[in-house]
Amino acid sequence: AVEGTYGIGRPALDEEVAAWDVDVLPDGRGLPAGGGDVFTGEEVFAEKCASCHGDFAEGVDNWPVLAGGFDTLADEDPVKTVGSYWPYLSTAWDYIHRSMPFGEAGTLTADETYAIVAYILYSNDLVDDNFELTRENFADFNMYNMDGFTVDDRPEQEYAAWRAEPCMENCKDEVQVTMRSVFLVDTPPEGGSDSV
């Protein structure tokens, strides 16, 4: 054992690391060689994705919407899609390749994944229909909402103000009930609405 270690475990082999370490970083590191275009992606998407996500990535029933929703993030009901919300293209490639289709994860080839991602970009009107996504041009693509995220700033925005001795008496003049849950949504019957 190396000094200061317990000497437990054994070396990971290169092919073992290659099998499990498939994550892709925002700068594109981790992508395999390959590529795929929008037309191929449309075919693959129709076969493997559209039954839940819709022919145009618009979502079926309650399944996730992957396209559209641009400039809705400040609305009462934001539509957060790959196009309108996701900051990095790497995440789409990584997640689809690793965890989709739902129930058959890990079955997409690298080229299929490039093609599906190209088609999702097309469905979001972010590329033309002759676009081909490859490892080489991947890092050049900037997502619509890439600047939409700030690192947690609760310490500055909230904690400073909320670390104060709280009021104990006469904290308000009066209290009104402004909303009651029993009028709004269905709580399962075992909840307070229907049972004691």
């Binding site: 370490d21 994550d23 925002p26 400040a74 919300y85 900051p87 995440t91 947690d152």
Partner: peptide, 30 residues
């Protein structure tokens, strides 16, 4: 895996990010 940057995976971009009223979002609200 020890990395030199955050992976920014699906569960820390699409999900587990917190959208403000102005449409911007907080990430890494751990």
């Amino acid at each position: 895996e020890v990395t030199d940057m955050a992976v920014e995976s699906r569960e820390e971009t699409s999900k587990y990010t917190d959208v403000y009223a102005d449409g911007t979002a907080r990430k890494w609200t751990w």
